[in-house]
């Protein structure tokens, strides 16, 4: 039997397919399509890749900001619940999960059975989100994938200390005008993002192990900065962005039992 999870995020749609409690397929599709349509397309692609008919899924659970738009889903779960579930499945030692996506970030605390016992979200401000990093790539004329590696190569860190995204952007421009090297500015940016993340982590009272999920977990600059701030190593799965979808798929499986 096949179970799918779909995570409709602010910028992309993630799909995970489970069979026999094994992850058999995963994908990330960046899309401008409206959530429901994008979800359908992403799932169709998955089934084509698996060479399976479109009606072969037993259950589908949706999550993410656009979860309500997925009309064909047999269930819905929130991002906090799905990321916790996915992270715990990958790392049974996970007690704190940090998900950082394009539209927001959240910290979750789990007990030793993986049950959610507390969570905290970002405030309205974009500082600390993936979208903020996106905006930074435009200002600094760089690519998202490069940010992390450039940041860790820096010898010095520029000051980006404002806790407001708009202010931070003007601080970055100030740094550019002063001739601060790009990688130093990026190191400052990653550090400032990590500071926001550390804040929500502390709110749920950090416990080992920390697992980081969501697209921003691929940014080594942010991960290193975060580890420096909280003084603990973070576990990052191979494909951190699909953990939400994976958690949703696990719920789909559970529902059918």
């Amino acid at each position: 039997m096949l179970f799918a999870g779909i995570d409709v995020g602010a910028q992309s749609v993630k799909v995970a397919v489970l069979s026999d409690n094994k992850l058999v397929f995963s994908s990330t599709t960046v899309t401008d399509e409206e959530g429901g349509v994008a979800a359908r397309q992403a799932l169709d692609k998955a089934l084509v890749a698996l060479r399976l008919p479109l009606n072969s899924l037993t259950a589908v659970v949706s999550t993410g900001i656009g979860k309500d738009g997925v009309a064909f889903a047999t269930g819905k779960r929130t991002e906090e619940i799905c990321h916790s579930r996915g992270a715990y499945w990958l790392f049974p030692s996970a007690r704190t999960v940090l998900d950082v996506g394009a539209g927001g970030y959240r910290a979750m605390r789990l007990d030793n059975r993986g049950k959610l016992i507390d969570f905290a979200n970002n405030s309205k401000c974009a500082a600390g989100t993936g979208s903020f990093l996106d905006a930074v790539t435009r200002v600094l004329d760089t690519r998202l994938e490069e940010i992390g590696t450039m940041a860790v190569s820096a010898k010095k860190r520029a000051s980006v200390s404002s806790y407001c995204a708009v202010f931070a952007e003007s601080e970055i421009i100030g740094n550019i005008h002063r001739g601060v090297p790009k990688e130093c500015i990026l190191a400052g940016v990653c550090y400032s993002v990590a500071e926001r993340l550390a804040e929500v982590l502390h709110r749920v009272k950090i416990a080992k192990d920390i697992v980081m999920t969501g697209g921003v977990a691929q940014n080594i600059g942010v991960v290193k900065a975060l580890e420096e701030i909280v003084g603990l190593k973070a576990k990052v799965p191979h494909e951190p962005q699909i953990v939400g979808a994976l958690g949703a798929a696990l719920f789909a499986e559970e529902m059918s039992k």
């Binding site: 010095k156 860190r157 000051s159 200390s161 601060v180 190191a187 400052g188």
Partner: peptide, 8 residues
Amino acid sequence: MAEEVKKT
């Protein structure tokens, strides 16, 4: 890592 800081 050393940091450039706000001047106060």
